[in-house]
């Protein structure tokens, strides 16, 4: 049994749990976007940051991937944590103007406008990788992956055309936290437009 504190409350945990799991198990709410229980965590969106304090020293960590350890003091609502959340949400508002879900989440934390240049009004994908991970880990097909890099990075099937790899199960659409997958779903499923096929291991 591991003992730690979350917001000054003593909490028991076991080796192998993450801070997020321990917090949620004890009813402490931490917002997340790129996290889903069905797939491995990736720590991409940084919305789940929490502050670890030890006397004067403190650091921010991503709770979805940080393992529990004896004696940690975890705080989920400090000014630093709230600041990070607001920055992240403001940036997400700019990156995904087409997502209702992000707008709602941002509003919940008091973020309604963004100072950053916004992408096209329809853009909703935050490249969180949940769709890629669910297709690989749960479905076992790896029909989609990220393509290109930097600001051009997006999600797609090979050659951005439907192939026979996708079986149109819709797991990616269900897991997508922003509604972006629903918009591009038809570029992935559909009559295969290439003759390429994929070996299943």
């Amino acid at each position: 049994m591991i003992t730690l504190t979350i917001n000054d409350q003593e909490v028991k945990a076991r080796k192998g749990w993450t801070l997020l799991e321990a917090a949620r198990h004890h009813g402490v709410d931490i917002p997340t976007l790129c996290y889903h229980e069905a797939v491995a965590p990736s720590g991409a969106c940084r919305l789940c940051m929490v502050e670890l304090k030890d006397g004067d020293w403190s650091k921010l960590v991503a709770s979805c991937i940080y393992p529990v350890a004896d004696g940690l003091n975890v705080y989920t609502e400090t000014p630093k944590v709230q600041n990070v959340r607001r920055w992240v949400l403001e940036m997400l508002l700019a990156a995904c103007p087409g997502s209702e879900e992000i707008a709602t989440l941002a509003r919940r934390y008091g973020v309604t406008t963004t100072r950053f240049a916004t992408k096209s009004a329809n853009e909703a994908c935050m490249v969180c990788g949940l769709c890629v991970r669910v297709c690989e880990e749960v479905v076992g097909l790896s029909a989609i992956a990220t393509v290109d890099r930097g600001v051009h990075k997006r999600v797609g099937a090979p050659y951005l055309k439907p192939t026979d790899v996708c079986v149109a199960c819709g797991s990616c659409v269900t897991i997508c936290p922003t509604g972006a997958m629903a918009k591009i779903f038809d570029t992935v499923r559909g009559e295969p437009q290439t003759k390429l096929t994929q070996l299943q291991a």
Partner: peptide, 11 residues
Amino acid sequence: LPYTCLQPGLE
């Protein structure tokens, strides 16, 4: 259970 699918819940 608070969350059946997280480690604590699975345990």
